[in-house]
Simulated scan of single mutants.
Amino acid sequence: MLTIVLVTGISMTSKAELIRLLVKEDLASCTGVAPMTCMQVKYKNSKSWELFYGGINGFKYQPGYRYVILVDRTKKKNVPADASAYDYKLKKNLKKQKMKGNTGNSAWDFVLKHKWKLIQMNGTTQKESPVYMVFDKDKNRVHGSSACNTFMGGFEKTANSITFKQLAGTLMACDAARNKIEGEFLQLMNGGAFRYDVADQTLNLYRGNRLVLMFGMAPL
C-alpha cells in the first residue's frame, strides 16, 4: 500500500503590520554598535519621542521636516541580540512639514555638526577612503584630507547649492593609488557649484542630476 504524505510549507516571513509613525524634525545622538545619530519617532501610544535605531526602506529623511508616515513593519526571525527585531518599509508618506523656529535642526546645521568621509565618487564606492571634509560655519571655511594631502579653502552656500573656492593644500608625495583619488576629488571640488542634499546620514553633491560625491557621517 502506497502512502502519500503531503507536507505543508511553513512561511519564514511574518505578516507585515501597518503602523503610523510621527518622525521628528531633528536627529538625536544614540549608541548602537558605535556612537551614531538616530531618528526620533512617536508611535500610536507614545507619550514622548523614542529613538529609532534602524532604517526604513524607501524613506528619505531630511532634518528640519516633521513627517507622518505609514510603514509596513515585519517581525524578523532569529534576530541577533544587538539587531532590530523588525524590518520597516515605507508604505505612504502622509505629511511632510517644514518646521519653523528650529534654527539648529536644518539640513545644513546637521552638516555643520559632523565630519564627512567620502564613500562614493563618480559612481565608484570608496572603501576605507582617506578623504574627508569638515565645515567651519563661523568662517565659511572647509578643511580636510584629499587622500594624500590636507586641503583647505572657502565655500559659498545658497538654499540648495554649494561652491568651494580658493582651495589649497599641502604638497606631500604619495603612492599612485592615492594620487589618482586625490586628483579626481580635487578636480570635482574645483569644478563649480554643486546641488546638495542630506538623506539619512549621507551628504550628497550633484552636478545637474548626476550624483558625483557622496559622503558618510563620521565622528569629529
Rank of each mutant, 00 (worst) to 15 (best):
I4Y: 10
L6V: 06
L6A: 11
V7C: 08
T8H: 10
G9Y: 01
T13P: 02
K15T: 10
K15D: 15
R20N: 15
L21R: 01
E25P: 09
D26K: 12
L27T: 11
A28M: 07
C30V: 02
C30H: 01
C30P: 04
P35D: 05
P35I: 08
C38M: 04
C38L: 05
V41Q: 03
Y43K: 13
Y43V: 00
Y43M: 12
K44L: 13
S48R: 15
E50S: 12
E50Y: 08
F52G: 01
G54E: 13
G54T: 13
I56S: 12
N57H: 10
N57I: 04
K60G: 04
Y61F: 13
P63W: 02
P63F: 00
R66C: 08
Y67K: 03
V71M: 07
V71E: 02
D72M: 07
T74V: 13
T74G: 00
D82M: 07
K92G: 01
L94Q: 11
L94S: 05
K95I: 12
K98I: 07
N102D: 12
G104V: 06
G104C: 11
D109Y: 01
F110L: 06
V111C: 08
H114E: 03
K117S: 14
K117F: 04
Q120P: 00
T125C: 02
Q126F: 07
V134P: 01
K139P: 00
N140H: 11
G144C: 07
C148D: 01
N149T: 11
T150W: 10
M152H: 06
E156R: 12
E156S: 15
T158V: 06
T163V: 04
G169W: 00
T170Y: 02
M172Q: 13
C174I: 09
A176M: 11
A177K: 15
A177S: 15
A177E: 12
R178E: 11
G183K: 04
E184F: 02
M189C: 05
G191C: 06
G192I: 07
A193E: 14
Y196P: 08
V198F: 08
A199L: 13
D200P: 00
L203Q: 04
L205S: 05
L205C: 05
G208Y: 12
N209Y: 09
N209L: 11
R210D: 09
R210L: 02
L211G: 05
M214H: 00
L220V: 09
